[in-house]
């Protein structure tokens, strides 16, 4: 009988681990998906405005492009932090 209790304990542990892994995977997916919304909108808006500016003043295109990359870098950081969280809790 003692042997069975050991076995059941082992299975329980395994089941709990699997549950935990499933919950972690699901929440990781949510975390990344939520983290991608804001930066997605932000980068789209930013690039759209930059293209508009470049089309209006092609002679200032170099400066606008540099600033655009800086802005993208700052905006993207949020999504990337979400990605790191995804890696940390999900995989």
């Amino acid at each position: 009988m003692e042997a069975f209790s050991h076995l059941i304990a082992a299975f329980d542990q395994e089941q709990a681990d699997a549950d935990k892994a499933a919950a972690a995977a699901a929440s990781a997916g949510f975390a990344y998906g939520l983290a991608a919304i804001g930066p997605g909108i932000g980068i789209g808006y930013l690039v759209g405005k930059s293209v508009e500016a470049m089309a209006r003043q092609p002679e200032a295109a170099g400066m606008v492009r540099t600033t655009m990359f800086l802005g993208i870098a700052f905006t993207e950081a949020l999504a990337l932090i979400g990605f790191v969280v995804f890696i940390l809790i999900g995989l």
Partner: peptide
Amino acid sequence: MHSAVVHLQGSSLQVHLV
């Protein structure tokens, strides 16, 4: 009277019922 010895070896869980 039985006793179980559990080994985790590589990828398999071995249980010795002694």
